[in-house]
């Protein structure tokens, strides 16, 4: 058993360093874990691919989840180096509560659409939702989902909210709203353009909702305190505002923020 005699403490320490820390230092490559809102799937995958093509030495891993839950996880020490939210409030909260978080930057604006599996909604205006054929109208829960809040604002702006309120059903997030309408259980949904363009929903027509009827659906991002020295994370966040990423986002149904738009909540 002589061969397996325990090395001295100092030796073990050196071994540990060699085994864990050094290889990445030698290759200069960096990897970053990015937390992102589920509604960014699969668009963000494409952007990450484009990023890694341009920066082959870096690697980006994306973890999708609900923005609120991801925020809570980051505040409680989750190993995420950057965070792309579906709104601006959560990144702002991180910026305030977790020192070291970068200032939030808007990376895209969402758009609302009307979508239905049961009815042809092409050209339908929001005021048309008062029609009897729309017995159940799905929107996201306004209290917790920005898309829901903006949908309600738009409905109020055209003056039909009070009339249709008792026909509204609530999804917890915009994907659930899409599922409610895709199943046909809800006759019509107010969902995100980015979802209406995705496989499964894209076969049906949609009607874009005038974005002057509601506050912008700004989505912002931050580098977390944990990722502040991670070059891959910082570069990826920068890349999000690069034309390559912007192209992918626009094709996926997002709009680009007018430059200089503030990301504060």
């Amino acid at each position: 058993m002589m061969f397996f005699k325990l090395p001295t403490v100092r030796l073990r320490l050196i071994l540990l360093l060699v085994l864990t820390g050094l290889p990445s230092a030698w290759s200069w490559a960096e990897s970053a874990t990015v937390a992102a809102a589920s509604s960014l799937r699969p668009t963000l995958d494409r952007i990450a691919e484009a990023y890694m093509e341009a920066n082959p030495e870096d690697s980006i891993t994306i973890i999708y989840g609900a923005s609120g839950r991801l925020t809570a996880q980051i505040l409680n020490g989750a190993p995420f180096d950057a965070f792309l939210s579906a709104d601006t409030a959560y990144p702002a909260a991180l910026f305030e509560q977790a020192p070291g978080t970068s200032e939030p930057v808007i990376y895209a604006l969402g758009r609302l659409v009307l979508w239905s599996a049961n009815h042809d909604v092409k050209g339908l205006a929001l005021s048309g939702l008062t029609q009897d054929r729309f017995r159940r109208i799905a929107i996201a829960q306004p209290a917790i989902a920005p898309y829901g809040q903006r949908a309600r604002e738009a409905l109020e702006a055209v003056g039909v909210w009070a009339q249709i309120e008792n026909r509204v059903v609530y999804g917890e997030n915009i994907s659930q709203v899409a599922q409610m309408s895709a199943s046909g259980a809800a006759d019509v949904a107010i969902t995100a353009l980015s979802l209406a363009l995705q496989d499964g929903l894209a076969e049906r027509p949609y009607a874009l909702i005038d974005d002057s009827l509601h506050e912008p659906l700004a989505q912002s991002m931050v580098v977390t305190a944990r990722g502040q020295h991670n070059n891959a994370a910082r570069n990826f966040i920068k890349f999000m505002r690069h034309t390559v990423a912007a192209d992918i986002l626009v094709r996926a149904g997002f709009q680009m923020p007018v430059s200089g738009m503030a990301a504060g909540s």
Partner: peptide, 25 residues
């Protein structure tokens, strides 16, 4: 359940045909 009980699903559609409401929501 949403699919089955909604207006397009077998149970929901049957209820609708009987002049009743489907069961989703």
């Amino acid at each position: 359940l949403l699919i089955v009980l909604g207006p397009l699903g077998p149970i929901g559609a049957t209820l609708e045909q009987m002049g009743l409401n489907h069961l989703a929501f």
